[in-house]
Each structure stands twice: as structure tokens, then as C-alpha cells.
Nucleic acid binder design. Sequence first.
DNA 1: ACGACGAGGTCAAAGGTCTC
DNA 2: GGAGACCTTTGACCTCGTCG
Lengths: 433, 433
Amino acid sequence: MNGTLADQLQNSLSTYNPIRNGGGVRDEGHYMNGASVSSHNGSMDSKFPPSYKRMAQRRKVPEGELCAVCSDLATGYHYGVASCNGCKTFFRRTIVSEQTFICQYNGNCDVNKNIRCACRHCRFNKCLIVGMDAKAIQNDRDRIGPTKKAKMSSGSDDEQAVTPHRLQDQEIVDQLTQIENLCAELRRRIIPDVTGVTQALTSNCMLYETTDLDLDGNTQFKELYPASMNDIRMWNIREMRICIEWGKTFEIYQRISLFDQFALVRNFAFAFNLLNRVFYSPDHGPDKIVFQNGAFIMRQPQQQVQLSGCRPIYTRQMDEIMIPFRRLQLSIAEFATFKAALFFNPDALDLSAQAKPEVYEERNKYLCALFTCITSKLGMAAGVQKYGSLLMMTASIQNILAQNEENMQVMELFKNWEVDPFVKELCMKPMIR
Amino acid sequence: MNGTLADQLQNSLSTYNPIRNGGGVRDEGHYMNGASVSSHNGSMDSKFPPSYKRMAQRRKVPEGELCAVCSDLATGYHYGVASCNGCKTFFRRTIVSEQTFICQYNGNCDVNKNIRCACRHCRFNKCLIVGMDAKAIQNDRDRIGPTKKAKMSSGSDDEQAVTPHRLQDQEIVDQLTQIENLCAELRRRIIPDVTGVTQALTSNCMLYETTDLDLDGNTQFKELYPASMNDIRMWNIREMRICIEWGKTFEIYQRISLFDQFALVRNFAFAFNLLNRVFYSPDHGPDKIVFQNGAFIMRQPQQQVQLSGCRPIYTRQMDEIMIPFRRLQLSIAEFATFKAALFFNPDALDLSAQAKPEVYEERNKYLCALFTCITSKLGMAAGVQKYGSLLMMTASIQNILAQNEENMQVMELFKNWEVDPFVKELCMKPMIR
DNA sequence: ACGACGAGGTCAAAGGTCTC
DNA sequence: GGAGACCTTTGACCTCGTCG
């Protein structure tokens, strides 16, 4: 799930379950698939020949062994872990019934014999952390002893229905996170030119073949230096292009009309740009937005970026977006899901009436996924606040966008800086309203 | 709980409750065989001495067994004693809440089915005497969530319970709802003039003495008619005044500096105005915002409210606020709490750095209350969406406010309509930025 | 064959929820 | 605000299939 969890996993495995370590893993043909979470299984497998494992597998749970989850007396090894009857049954029930729990507190409740029922989220979490293996759950009890044959026939395992789709939200978040990483990759590459937004929208998505593109030297970090207008222009265009590629990864986005695609992306592109800029800005204090290549924007107006009527926008980006983001300690997964929820805005200007309900539902999907993602780490109490605070940031974002648009109008009007045609096509609403 | 009781307890335990103690061997037979249960069991209980009963400890309470406390029909063995549902729950509640009762008579009241509620002291005493075991009371478990409601509403997935601070949240919501009603009352009254915002902020809150004020005939509904500029102006000023009175009802608001009070109210007053306008607009279709006195604004630009550059604002108010509000079916309580969360905006322009954290916490308070309020009605799945959709409306609100401010600047610039001095002081940021 | 182990199943009795 | 009917969850104990 996240780094901390993985660390805990490593620790807890050796702490809670040393017997299994020494005694070897269960019969490999049974339920252990190499895909298991724990890496220590892998090392075991490589150390001992199968025969050892079989012999050791029969080993009784030592007298007085405690449940790795709740420290009650263990009744045996269940789902790969020394555990008590209660935790064993609890784990199976949770998996089978596809339940999802949310911690009412902060997601780090104690789990022990006396209070193990107090928080089901944290109890289940602990089950996973100590290594209980959901794949050991047999969903079909009526199987007819095919064990021997199955082992003989092939080493390849057909694992159908291995993952119950109870973690639908988690899957959504995971996928968005993956796409987010692809975007990061594309951000380093030379993005081929297009004639305009329409061509960008209708061409194949570049995110799945980023490695075909050459690295762009301009995006590589060399040193910190004050951003020039060219830097700002380059990053603006770059993010806008990435935004379109990102949008095209959504299945629903491909289904709606080009007109609606345009409406959504025009509504969101600059927010995408802005959000990525501040979220991925390395932390050099609250007064600097730093681009990937080292160019930075300071709070104090610089020579390089002074334009009439366009000054206060960066201060606001720092105060109302960058600093709150840092305070909220958003993970990349949360950030990615948040952007998806923003993108599918049913109130986007010019969005057709037919598309609205569909977009609304899509947004709901990401809102729920975001909520699940946040509360699974923080629990209910803090999660509701974080989710709420994050969503209320939309106000600031919108505000800054409005101001930015105004600035662009001013620029256009006074011609003191020519806006890139692609950016103009993507971001600026026509003057006539 | 006292000496005598302890003695009695000892006795009663050996008399009434030999079964539960000791880990006797289980019944040989197949206990799940429903057909044999009652007859087998019944005969056992009557035939065999107590020590044998322990073998049957897992069996159902015999047919017709009576509650050892009140002689009602027993529903099973609870806390070691055959007892009815009432006495079981009564015993747990008493232990958990650590209540102490005092007998009004002589401490030897009869306890039976009909009068078991007459004396809680004697009922609890009886519970102990017959051997109910306080050690069998467990720690608090995780919340389960709605039971009956879940079936009734949309058959969505797992409904998890809401925060443990439920009651506290409910209180917050209730209080806000009350204030909301007071505002509605004030809205109908003649509000005394003030010299300016500062005077309004520093005077006593009028909401608690609305009945001292005379009714304002201009606010009473007579008939529907197109709003004049005077109507709009009147309602603007009125809502701004109410906003200040409303703000003063918050304890924290009274504590912060006048400067910060000004910052918060300036940031929010027009939103307050706008939100109340559309929320309380009687539903005359999606194309009309109707004031309380019958004046209405149409989507199509009217003669009366045509101002250069100021047209599209009402369309947006309808499309992005009024219609979504109706779609979300906000209750007054939810609406009131939402406004409180908006009001305490830590990113409000000009808010002092000291006040920010406090305001942030205050907002969190209302966010949690809002979430509780919504999910307690809709359950988790739908609640998360509604909460999320509502909070994302802040973007539209902010957008419209920005546009409104722009309009006001235009008005001010072209002097085609004089903005009321009070409104100007409250809403307009200085031109210099 | 047989006993140990750990899958899943069972159900009384815990606790929680909801309507008076 | 408490009582108690009703609902959900828990876990000790059970059976069964599979190994050594």
C-alpha cells in the first residue's frame, strides 16, 4: 500500500512469525503462490529444498505461541500465520464477505486480546501486516481432492478469482497512480508537436509509449536558477500537452463527443498545470515554486516575470495551493485521484447536457475512491477533515484560475507577452460571452 | 458492589451457575442437529444434576426456561445466567455506564416481569444475586452501522458507522439550524441602520431579539413579479446585514480581532447572500430565482437588470448553485452547516497568520459535523458522494463571486449603478492589489 | 490406516441499533 | 432518556479433506 506499511510488514514478519521462517513455508502446491506479499517467503523458497519444507510444515504450533494479530493464545497456523481462533475467523469472514472497514480514529489503533473488537479496520490491517494470506482462503469448499494431480500436471497456476473485487476503490486509485507515474515519465521527454488541440485529442495516447520518445535535456535538473519567461512558457505548454494525454487514458473520456472532451479539458487544463507545478515542486521553503529543471519562481516579483497586472498570482499559488498541499501531506495516490475528481466536472462550461450525468457519476467514482484512499490511512475522524479540506481547496484553485484567465486576457489585450497558440486555444474562453 | 452483595454473589454463583464454569467436555452428539435439540436438552436439564449441565453449555436455553432475574421468558444464557433480553441489556448498560442506583424503599423490592422497571437498584441487585458476571462484559466493539435502514435504502455496499463524536456533531448541527431559523426571522424584519461595517460588527447580535423588531412589509410575499433593481439592492443589503449578525453568533468569531472579523466576513458576505438567495428561493423551475417577497430574476436578461458586462451571472447562479442544490436535496441543517464551514476559511484574504490555525480548526469542526449529518441520513456510500459534491461546489461559488466582484468593479467604473456604501465596504476589495 | 493440522461451518451469546 | 425487541458480529467448537 504505502512505504510505511511495507516496512511494518517486513518487521512484523520476522517479529511475529519466526517459526514459519525457521520451519519453512507450507507445501508450495497448496495455496502459496509466489505472488504473495511477503518477500521473506521467496528467500525461504530459495534456501531450502522442497522436502525440508514439507517436513517442517507439519510442525505443531509451539506451546504458548501467541496470535500474531492480537496476542491471544494461538490455536495454530491460519492463513500462514500463528493466530487465535477469533482472528482466523475474522480474517476469513472479512475476505469472504468483501467488507471494507474504516477506522473511527486515526488508523493506528492497538490490536490486542482485550480490545481486538474495537476497531475492525485496524484489526484487519494487522492481519495483513503480519502476513495473513487472502489467497489461502478457499472459496469453494466442495473441491474434490485434486491436489496431487494438480501438482503433477503443471507448475503454472491458474488463479481465477484470486483477488476479490472488494477493493474496487483501491484499484481505481492504483490505476490512477500508475498513470501519474507515466505522466512523470512523459514530462521528461520531448513531446512531438501538434497542429492544435483537436489533433492532440484525436491522436493515440502517448503515455503508454513514453520510452519511444527521447529525453528532453531542457527538463533535466542542473542547478537552481530564477525562471525566465521561456521556462514558464515551456512548462505551461508541456503540462497542457500532458494534460491531454492524461485525459485520454480515461475510458469514459474516449466515449464522449469531441466537443465535450474539449469542454472538459479546457475547463481543467490550467488547473492540471498549476496543481502539478506546485505539488511536484521540490520543497525549497514556502516562497519558491521550483520546476523540475531547477528554474524557480519566487514570491517576490522578479524582473523576469513582471507583467502589468499579472503579479499576485504566484503568491496565491504558494499560499493557497502549495502550502496547504504540504500541510495536508497528500500522497501521490491521493493527488492523482483528486485531479481525476476535478477533471470530471459536470459544471464545466459548455459541457453538453447529455454528458453531464455521466460526468457526474464519474466524478462520484473518484470522490469515493479518494475518500477510501484517505480514510484507509487516517481513519474516519482525520480522514473526513482531510477529504473536506482538500475538496474545499477547489475554491482557491478556481479563484486562481479565474485570476489567471484575467491575466491572460490582459496579456492578450496589451500584447506584452504573446501567449502560445496551443495554450491560447486550450485555456482561453472566447471574449464574447 | 457492597459486602453483603459479594457474599450473596458467591453463593449464587455456585447455586445458579455451575454450568459456565469449568471447561467440561462437549456434548458428544451433533449439536447442530436442530430436530433433537429441544427434546434432548429438555430431558437432560430435568434429569441430570447441575454438573452434567456443563456438557450442554453450548445448547440453547431449554424451552420455556424463565429469566432468573424477572421470570420473563429467557432468551438464552446471558452473563452466565438464563435471562431475558431486557435483563441482559439492563445489566450490560448498568455496568458499562457505571451507574449506581439507590432504592427508594427498603432495598428488597420484588423484581418480576411486570414491575422489573420499578426499582433499578433492586433489579441490578437481583442480577448480581442470581450470578450475572460482570467479567463477561466485553470492551466496546466497533460500530456496526445502520441495520434496518440499510435494507430500505439503495442496496449499496457496506454501511459503516459514523464517527464516535456523533452526538457532539449533532449538537453543532442543531445549534446552527436554530441560528438559521433566527436568521429567517430577522430576514422579515426592519433592520436598523448602521453607520458602517465596524458598527455592525461591534454592536450586540440582533438575532436573539428579532421579535423586538417590526416586520418589514417589503419582505412579505404578495405576488410574483420581475425584480427591480431596488429589489435586488434591498435584498443584497439585507443579506449582508444578516450575515454579520449571523457571524457574531459564533463564539470563536467574537474572540478574534476586529481585523480578522472583517477579513472573514468580507470573504464570505457575498457568498452568504448568494447561497441564501438560491437556497431559499421557492422552486419555480430552473429558470427563476425568486425572492421572499415575490420578486424574481429570470434566466433571460430582463430590462430591469441589464447592466453592461453583468449579464451572465444569474445564469451561472442558477446552473451552478441553485440547480445543484436542488439535485443534492440539501436539508436546512446541512445547508446551515455548510455555510459555517465556508465562513471559517483559513485562506481568507487578509486573515492574520495567528488566526489561521484557529479558523482552520473551526472549519474542521463544521466539516465533521456536516459529514456526520449527511451520512447519518444517507449512509456511507451515498454520503461520501453528497459531502464531496457539496464541497466541490465551493469552486463554482468562488467562481461566481469572482465574476460578481468583477461586475461590481465594472459598475463602479462606469457608474451605471451606484453600489450601496455598506455593500461596497463589505464586499469590494480595494483596487490596488 | 490414522492422527494431526488447518481449511470451512455452526450457533449461542456477546454487542449494537432502533423504535417506542 | 431508558427499555427491550431485533439485528449483526464474535469465537469456541465442530466436521472434513489432506497430508506424512
